[in-house]
Design a protein around this nucleic acid. Structure first.
Lengths: 231, 231
DNA sequence: ACAAAAGTGTTTGGAATACACCCATGC
DNA sequence: GCATGGGTGTATTCCAAACACTTTTGT
C-alpha cells in the first residue's frame, strides 16, 4: 500500500554521505560503492542514503557505516552540508556529510546488500564519482590533513595494538611527506595518549618494535579540557 | 490558492539559523530576534528561516542575514547541522547553521519585518533561547574562539579603518583574556594582512593612533596557499 | 654477514612570552 | 599639567627541526 506525505511547502530530501577512510599497504584508502540503480548507475559513489524520520543525521551516518562496513563505534564526525540545488538529478537533495576513520583489517565486507559492489580505493586513484561526491571527498581529505596535525586521530586507522613505525607511516601517507623518526616519536609521545605495552612485534626480520595502544580515556579527557580544537 | 506537495516518503523541513556576532562598546554581542509567532512566541531566538526550493543553504543564510541586518557581503561560514528529531515542536526540522561577523556600526536595524523585535545581546548576557539555539550559540562561540587564534577574522567586526588598539580589544573580548600590547602588534603585523594608512585617529584625548585596513586580497591569497586551516 | 627496521640525544633557529618607559593629544 | 591610550625593543623560554649511529632479529 502506497502512502503519500503531503506538505504546504515543497521540502528537500535529506541524505547523509560518508567518506570512510582506511589504511592498508602503506596507502590511505577510501571506501566507495558501485551504484546499482539510476541515476549514475554503475558509477562509483560515497556510501550514503536517506535520513529516516526517526533518526538524526549522526544516527543515519552510523547506520550507513555499520551497514556498509559491519563496523560500529567508529571514529566519525560531521564534515559539511552540501545543498547545491542541482546536485542530484532526482530533485532537491541536501546531504549532510560525515567522515570516518576505520581500520581495514576489522572491516567485514558486506555481502552485496542492495547488490552493491564495495571497494577500497587508494586516495590517489579515485575514479570519477557520482553526484558532487568528488567535492565531498576532497573536503574530507583536506579536513583529515588539517585534523591530523593537531589531533592524534591517525591511531583510528590502525589495529588496537600498533607500533610507532606503523603510526608514522599513517601520518606520512596522509600528509604525503616524509617525517623524521625521532621528532615524530617525541611529538606523538608527548601527547601522552599512547600507552606502551609489555609486548613486542613477532616474526619480523628486524628488531621487534614495542606495541602501543591508544589511551582513549586520556584523549577524551584532554579534549574536554579544550586541549584540542575542533577542526 | 493552496497547493500541496506530496512525496512517497516523509521529508524533514530544512531551515538555516545564523549566529551573527557584532562588537560594540568593548563587548562581543549576538543578534537575537524576538519570536512573533508560536512556537516559542515571545522568546528570543537566532535569526533564521526555511530554505527555499531554489536556493542553497548558503544563499538562504545570506538572504536571512540581509533581511535581518540589511548587510550584504559579510563574512560568514557554515557552522554545523543540527538534526535532533525533537528539536522543533512543529515536527521534523533539520537546521543548517552559519555564523557571521558583522560590524554593528554599519548595521541598519530593520523595521520590524515579521513584527519581530531584534536586539544585540552581549554574549555574557544571553537570555533563554528558543529551540536548541542555546547549543547552536555555544558551538558558534567556541568556533569563533578557535578560529581567531589562527585567522585574523577579528577585523570583520570593526569598521573598514581601525586602530590596532581597537583590534586588540576585539581579541580580548572574544578570548576573554588580556593580551600584551607589544606582542599582539608583532603577531598581527607579521601576518601581513593589515595595511597601515597615512591617516590617524582624530579628536581623541591622547596620542592619535594610525588607522589600518584589512588586506582582503592578501588574506585570500594566503588562504589559497593553505596558510590558514579551515576550522 | 647482511638486510631491515627499531631505538635513541643533542644542537640550532625561530616563535612566543614577559616586561617598562616615553610620546602625543585633549581637556 | 595631567590623564589617556599610542608606540616601541630586548632578554628568556619553549618548541620544532635537523641530524647519525647502534641494536636486534630473521634469513
Amino acid at each position: 500500500m502506497k502512502q503519500d506525505y503531503c506538505y504546504k511547502h515543497p521540502r528537500p530530501s535529506v541524505t547523509t554521505d560518508c567518506v570512510i577512510f582506511g589504511y592498508d599497504q602503506l596507502q590511505l584508502k577510501v571506501l566507495l560503492i558501485e551504484r546499482g540503480i539510476e541515476p549514475y548507475k554503475g558509477k562509483w559513489a560515497l556510501p550514503g542514503g536517506f535520513v529516516r524520520e526517526d533518526e538524526t543525521t549522526e544516527q543515519a551516518a552510523a547506520r550507513e557505516l555499520s551497514e556498509e562496513t559491519g563496523l560500529k563505534n567508529i571514529f566519525f564526525e560531521q564534515l559539511y552540508t552540501f545543498s547545491n540545488v542541482d546536485r542530484d538529478p532526482r530533485g532537491r537533495v541536501i546531504t549532510v556529510t560525515y567522515f570516518a576513520l576505520v581500520n581495514i583489517e576489522n572491516f567485514k565486507p558486506v555481502a552485496g546488500d542492495d547488490a552493491k559492489n564495495a571497494r577500497w580505493f587508494p586516495v590517489k586513484e579515485i575514479p570519477k564519482l557520482a553526484f558532487d561526491h568528488e567535492m565531498i571527498f576532497r573536503k574530507a581529505l583536506y579536513r583529515l590533513k588539517s585534523k591530523i596535525k593537531w589531533q592524534p586521530v591517525g591511531v583510528e586507522l590502525l589495529q588496537d595494538k600498533f607500533t610507532l613505525g606503523e603510526l608514522q607511516s599513517v601520518y606520512e601517507a596522509i600528509l604525503e611527506i616524509k617525517l623524521d623518526k625521532r621528532n615524530f616519536r617525541k611529538k606523538i609521545l608527548k601527547t601522552e595518549v599512547l600507552i606502551q605495552l609489555d609486548e613486542k612485534q613477532k616474526n619480523v626480520a628486524h628488531k621487534a618494535a614495542y606495541l602501543y595502544k591508544f589511551d582513549k580515556k586520556k584523549y577524551e579527557q584532554l579534549e574536554n579540557d579544550g586541549f584540542y580544537f575542533e577542526i
